[in-house]
Design a protein around this nucleic acid. Structure first.
Lengths: 117, 117
DNA sequence: TCAACGGTTGAACAGTTGTTCAACTATGGC
DNA sequence: GCCATAGTTGAACAACTGTTCAACCGTTGA
């Protein structure tokens, strides 16, 4: 029997809750996954990722392509680096960015599938 | 030749920019895709989606499972409904939520693949 | 008809996010 | 060394987001 706490609800289907609880990954924390999807949750970052999927590019090129400042692009590249979605490679004064692996493409495609019903 | 505007950068690799531009989808707008990924970019919504992937659930059950108020859950279910990720079904006083299709599972899995390197 | 309960809603609030601006570092050419 | 250029960074700001709270709607059962 569910104990009454100071909540604004009662448990209706305790069996369902118990079943789902056993199916939840340990700790039931999706923060890392949420962080990953945050990277795809912004129009600018999506454009950057799409562009890098087409070709390795430097910050200037990305800025020109997207019509934004180098600063804005650089600020967005930082979390993408931290999330291990892009890698970079300095050559003289120019820093070339590219996708870290092909997960980006898969995530893109899976999302587009939903959009296009 | 690229015209000089009042920008803080010069185009370095015009050929690359042109190539990428031709590979960009028409209008180069990823807003819809960004909106979709926003739904996965929050820990609470991820838990809700995961739970619904395990079993159809009502708002009370979700609130109990996640230790949150019905209001908070309901507020998160709304955008999920709009994004066509969940559907609902009223039975008397109880509203049962379930996943709208199996794209959610695919998107989940693709994300987890990246997390687990 | 009325109370009880499941669920939704809107306003309010704090916390977060994306862009801008100015200052900064780093590399290369003179 | 000095300057120009590629890129990064931190502070500031407005815009947005998630939760809470209180009020509300819808259905059921007495």
């Amino acid at each position: 029997m569910a104990e009454k706490l100071s909540r604004d609800y009662d448990v209706i289907h305790e069996d369902v809750i118990n079943k789902v609880r056993t199916l939840m990954p340990a700790g039931m924390d999706f923060s890392d996954l949420a962080e990953l999807y945050k990277m795809f949750a912004d129009n600018t970052r999506l454009k950057i990722l799409w562009a890098l999927n087409c070709n390795e590019m430097c910050v200037c090129d990305l800025a020109a392509l997207l019509g934004m400042s180098k600063s804005a692009i650089s600020h967005q590249l930082k979390p993408l680096r931290i999330a291990n979605l892009v890698k970079y490679n300095r050559n003289g004064k120019v820093v070339y960015y590219s996708l870290a692996d092909d997960h980006v493409k898969s995530i893109f495609d899976t999302g587009l599938e939903h959009i296009n019903e």
